[in-house]
Design a protein around this nucleic acid. Structure first.
Lengths: 213, 213
DNA sequence: TGTACATCAGTGAACGCGCGTTCACTGATGTAC
DNA sequence: TGTACATCAGTGAACGCGCGTTCACTGATGTAC
């Protein structure tokens, strides 16, 4: 096959590579982004600073300009994962509309729960990363925060009269435990791979609404 | 300090070591046992075949007589952890006695739930190992099986009239999700370390009993 | 507007490490006759 | 009862690997005067 055109492209790429400036410009963001990709398909145990540096095209030691240790990177990735989860909850919630505020508040609550489980099923490694035990804690609150989304949703149900105010204190943890539990069960090794869990998910979510009444 | 007696002991030990037979005798069991200890204080990521061989006093390659790969050992440890969990559930259940069968069935159910969470709190690394994603599956059913303990307990409640038979199918997953969820939440990095979760645990377990009625 | 200089963000080589796994081997055990 | 031999369960050395982290360094950038 003729290779002149390809050669031009190749040289173009080589030039791009050679033109690579000494300063990356946004190395920290690039590292976190690359790390999210790695976690997505290898899990958080597959994260390696050297590997990320390679991917981003930078020397291993450059990563230490931005993260004091691997563990700090892990913390960032974990938080990112939680924030990604929170964003999908918001999208699911805002997808539910209607004028009956009471009914809408319950439907939104259930949509959030369903989206939570769906995130875990679709992105098991990110979900795992989101709640991984981690030696260093986040220095910034999650934004958006899945917990806040849940609490707000329950507050809406209380305002709309779908849940009695007496449940205010305990309701978030009850709801979170239920959806989190079925999520981890369905994505763990004890759940037979490839088998749908739709019925179980529906039953759990229905039980939550029921137990908050 | 005089060292004659100590020397005798020391020589005794040395002789013991030198007397070590060529064949270990129960290497497989010794490896699994050592692995449980490692997992208990380093987590499952800290498992290394070489390290175990060292601990047990055997060459690294000897482990391959008993496990085709590290992953197979991980599977065994994971199953062991689940069985340990199941045993604590049985103990907790059998600790509840009484003549009122209906009341007893509910109290046993709740005791099992509480023991489940307590196991996770007391042995977070074993709990994590029990449900770790694992590339090879177990070849033998868990014995005892935590799932069976739970199902039996619900069956008892149904017989005693504490739970309507119509809930038979969905009840186990609802209950399991709740206790499993709060367990993973409380042992994950998002729960502030050292803060008691007793109130939340009680609220979740009460909500489960409520939602099964 | 030009320049000296501090600071920042990279490089590249090296350190020491432990890992999983394989290989040819040998010592111990059990079994058929 | 003794013995030849297959099989089992170890040894020990080596392979190749990738990792986190440190170090002395240099190129680029921004800022005070």
């Amino acid at each position: 096959m003729p290779n002149d055109v390809n050669d031009v492209n190749m040289y173009g790429r080589l030039v791009d590579m050679l033109d690579k400036p000494y300063h990356h410009g946004s190395l920290e963001e690039a590292l976190v982004g690359a790390a999210m990709n790695v976690v997505e398909d290898m899990g958080i145990a597959g994260l390696s600073l050297r590997d990320l540096a390679r991917t981003v095209g930078v020397s291993p030691s450059a990563t230490y300009r931005h993260f004091p240790s691997r563990e700090h990177l892990v913390m960032r990735v974990s938080q990112r994962s939680r924030e990604a989860l929170a964003r999908t909850l918001l999208v699911a919630r805002d997808g539910i509309v209607g004028n009956n505020t009471k009914r809408r508040s319950v439907e939104r609550f259930e949509a959030i729960g369903r989206a939570y489980v769906q995130f875990a099923v679709d992105q098991p490694t990110l979900f795992e990363a989101a709640f991984a035990r981690c030696e260093v804690g986040p220095t910034t609150p999650d934004d958006p925060s899945a917990w806040s989304v849940l609490v707000d949703s329950i507050e809406q149900m209380i305002s709309a009269g779908a849940v009695p105010p007496s449940r205010r204190k305990e309701a978030p943890m009850i709801a979170w435990s239920g959806v989190h539990g079925i999520s981890t069960i369905v994505t763990s090794s004890i759940w037979p791979a490839g088998v749908s869990a739709d019925e179980e998910i529906n039953a759990v979510i229905a039980s939550l609404t029921r137990s908050l009444r």
